[in-house]
Each structure stands twice: as C-alpha cells, then as structure tokens.
Design a binder for these strands. Structure first.
Length: 432
RNA sequence: UCCCGCUUAGCUCAGCUGGUUAGAGCAUCUGACUGUUAAUCAGAGGGUCCGCAGUUCAAGUCUGCGAGUGGGAGCCA
C-alpha cells in the first residue's frame, strides 16, 4: 500500500495532521469560513478553512484563489457527515504554488466540441476520471485474463507493408521511400504466433482511415486479438464468451461500481453478463429479423437497425455466426457444410452498443487461401509469408478481435466512444 | 461519401412575422454573509450575432456559397 497520504487512502489518516498536494476543484464560503475542495488525482476532499485559524492575510489569499490553483494544504483529517466523501480536512495552513484565474472549464455545462478542444483540461473532471479509470480496469482485466491462461503476449507490428484485409482504408506513411501502412489489425501476425506458441495475443493501437464519423468510430483505437492453434469456431466462441464474462466481472469486482455510480450507469445489464450467451447462425438471425419486420437482404451483412432490433430481444451479449462468405474477409474459413457461409462470429453487445467482437476460424488450406486472395484482388506476393503458415504445419485455428473503446463505452453506458480514450483521434479531430 | 440539424458574451443558451440602443444564467471582477454542497445575495465589465456575397428603406432574423460542429447512413472493432 502507498505510505504517502492521498485522498484515496485518507481513512488511514483520521485525526492526524497531513499535507495534501493538489489543485483547487471548487471554493465556497463566507468571510469567516471557506470550503476549498482539493483534488489530488486520487480523489476530492472538502477542506474547512477558518479565518480565526489562518489569520486575516492567509484567509484573504485563499478567498482569491481560482479554480485549478495549485496548492499544498496541511491540516487534520476528521470524519464528518457534512462532507460528501465522509472525510474533511481542518486546514492549518495552505501553500500556494500557483494562483490560477480564468480556468476555462467551469462547474456548469459545456458542449462536446468545447470539451474536446480542452481535452487536456477536461480529463481533470470527475466524470472523465471515472471513465478513464474504468478503461484502466478493462485493460487490466484483459491482460490478466490472457496472462492467467498462458497466452503469450506477442506484439504485432504497427508498420505493415500491405493491407491485412484489403477492405478498409489505410493510413499510408513514407517508410524510407517505400509506402508503409499503419496496422488495421494484428491478426495475421498472431496466426504466425499461434503456430509458434499455441496461444498468443496482441493488444495495441490500430488505425482505420475510413471516413466514418459516428459515435462508434475512432481512427486510432485499441484492439486485443487472441489467436488459438488447434481451435475451431466453437472453441473461439467459447473463449469469447468466457472472456467477456470474466472481464465484466473483474471490472465490477475491482472498484468499477464506484466509478459507474459517478456515471449513473445502471449495472443491471452488466450483472446479466453470464453464460450462456445466446448463439444463433446468421440465417437464424435473419429469420428472426424477418418476423420482427426488419428483413435482411439475402446474403448481405446486417445494418445498424438490424443489430439494434436483434440485440433488443436479449438481456446479454449475443453471438451470431456463419455469416455470408461474400461479406467476410479473405482469410475466413468457409463452412464445409455450406461454402456460402463463413465460420465467423460477431458478438453483439446489448443496449444498442452493437458489434464489440469480430472473430472466426481461419482458412487453413493453402489452395483455398490462394484462390481467396485472388478473388479479393489482393497481391499474392505480400502474403507469401502468410501462405507459409499453411505449408508448414497448418492446423485449424482461430481467434477474435475486441475493440477496447467499444467495450468501455458499453460498460460505462456512454453515448459516444470518444470519451473512452484520453485523446481521441477522429476524422475531424487530431488536436489536442 | 450521402442525408438532416446547429453556429449569438469565456461557457450554455434565448432572441416572435425582418424594425429603434443585443438578452439571461454560469464564469470573471468588486462587495456582503461563521457549515457551504453547481452555495446564496447586491453590483460591474464583457459582442466581428461563423465568413463571404446577395435580397431589402432596414438582416442576428430571408437567399446562395463556404467553413466549423453535432446526429444519422454506409463500413467496421
């Protein structure tokens, strides 16, 4: 445990005089007593400053402090029901490092554009603290999950010589005179890893230059991608389901409830995240959607209204598998029982959050893969190393990709994905 | 890329059918107040009404173009 006092561990210091370093979150009071709220990064505590204790000069200086002034406050910690956190500091002295005036983010409401322009300051506020701490919890949960199950962390490269899938638009960079692209997925490299180590995962930033300006898209986002050798689509679905249950449970058990309360997130839907998740084929889902007056065009992917309608029927994430081969990536294995269907699965989150996991069993036949690369108009030269994986010890294998920000948005119950990342990168936003 | 909305004080917004000097709350500054929880009360300062062009006796208000921003679609995690 930390041996230095901070607001998060303040209960250890009741009736002791300590010094807290932080920033002024808010200031109320009269000309005899004032209530500076000090923020130190770990929390917020209300302090009680009396003119009779501090003296006229120091009290007057305190009253002039602006929001986010940098302060060290020394005083005694007391339990007090009148303070929101239950603890209060009776101030003995204040050291002012900087008196601030004109801090742009006031305690009143602001619009999203203004707040994102001031993202570097906005992240000091309570709500953003809660979201970014839930993000941190999700990351820990994901790492722990795979580490405890003997997956090797095998980082996929960010610079890639060719598109992984050939579908999405890529960010091109000048790599010493030749084009290189920022990775849109680390999956292909994980397939090499799975054949080397059996179970691997990568967890890092990925980039999509798609002109998608919606509440569910970022141009830079974090994705975790596990890959398993000797695994079929059912193994992948079992893994994805178990993973989601454990991650949500971890977040709730490790302090997430406190943060979700700040966000006024109803945790009921999160507590519902228990096995088994409903599993259905694409064709079964289409039949259900047709009954719900939301028909799907034959052999087309779902649109947003389809996903919304379908997920509304369930109280937990659902897994839809065996999508039309035509709408899926070249590396996805065709269903041996029906080549028009691919052995891929999407996990759709409830409450309208849509696709959070894309997964599948990979094509393990060199011949079929060569044909698919040609059908997708891809340059085979770029994939010779990938075809090697089918020449030297090819086995059934698969894995999934989870978008971290979509997970965090759903867990937190946010309207927009952009608040789930410290500095969002979107089509129309590169700053700050 | 397509469709729809919005742009007025530092921030959030009001501003009627086009009509005299542009409105509020918060923030800022000054003052009052011994337990405040977005404290309250009194006062003050603060405006290129997004930009350009047009219609009109008259434009924050109407029209066109452009920019920014928000939402949706497609595509995806």
């Amino acid at each position: 445990m930390s041996n230095k006092p901070n607001i998060a561990n303040i209960a250890q210091y009741v009736d002791q005089e300590i010094t807290l370093n932080g920033w002024l979150y808010n200031l109320r009071g009269s000309n005899k007593i004032a209530f500076p709220q000090l923020r130190d990064g770990s929390g917020i505590i209300q302090c009680v400053a009396k003119k009779s204790v501090l003296g006229d000069e120091a009290f007057a200086e305190l009253r002039r402090l602006g929001q986010e002034s940098a302060l060290s406050i020394t005083g005694t910690i007391h339990v007090d029901e009148r303070a929101k956190s239950g603890f209060e500091m009776q101030v003995a002295g204040i050291k002012v490092h900087q008196n601030v005036s004109g801090y742009p983010i006031s305690p009143k409401e602001h619009g999203p554009a203004f707040l994102h322009d001031n993202r570097h300051l906005w992240m000091r506020s309570k709500r953003q603290h809660a979201i970014l701490k839930v993000r941190h919890l999700c990351i820990r949960a994901i790492r722990d999950y795979f580490d405890e199950r003997d997956f090797l962390l095998l980082d996929s490269p960010i610079f890639t010589p060719n598109p992984c899938e050939g579908t999405s638009t890529l960010f091109e960079t000048d790599y010493f005179g030749q084009p290189a692209y920022l990775s849109q997925s680390g999956q292909l490299y994980q397939e090499a890893g799975a054949m080397a180590f059996g179970k691997t995962y990568t967890f890092g930033p990925t980039f999509r230059a798609e002109k998608s300006s919606t509440r569910r898209h970022l141009t830079e986002f974090w994705m975790v991608e596990p890959e398993l050798a000797y695994a079929d689509i059912d193994d992948v679905m079992d893994l994805a389901e178990d993973f989601m249950v454990e991650v949500v449970r971890y977040v709730l058990e490790r302090g997430g409830r406190e943060h979700l309360a700040v966000l006024e997130r109803d945790v009921g839907p999160l507590e519902n995240v228990q096995k088994p998740f409903p599993r259905m084929t694409y064709d079964e889902a289409c039949a259900q959607l047709a009954k719900l007056d939301q028909p799907v065009d034959p052999d087309s992917d779902f649109g947003a209204p389809h996903e919304t309608k379908l997920t509304q029927q369930y109280d937990r994430p659902i897994m839809v598998h065996r999508y039309p081969t035509a709408v899926k990536a070249f590396y996805m294995k065709e269903d041996p029982e029906n080549p028009a269907r691919a052995l891929g699965m999407d996990m759709l989150a409830p409450e309208g959050y849509g696709e959070i996991i894309g997964s599948g069993q990979r094509e393990d036949s060199e011949d079929i893969l060569v044909r698919k690369i040609a059908e997708h108009g891809l340059n085979r030269e770029h994939f010779e190393w990938y075809l090697d994986l089918r020449r030297y010890g090819s086995v059934p294998h698969g894995g999934f990709g989870l978008g971290l920000e979509r997970l965090v948005a759903w867990v937190c119950g946010l309207q927009h994905i952009r608040e789930t990342v410290p500095f969002p990168r979107m089509m129309d936003r590169l700053r700050p």
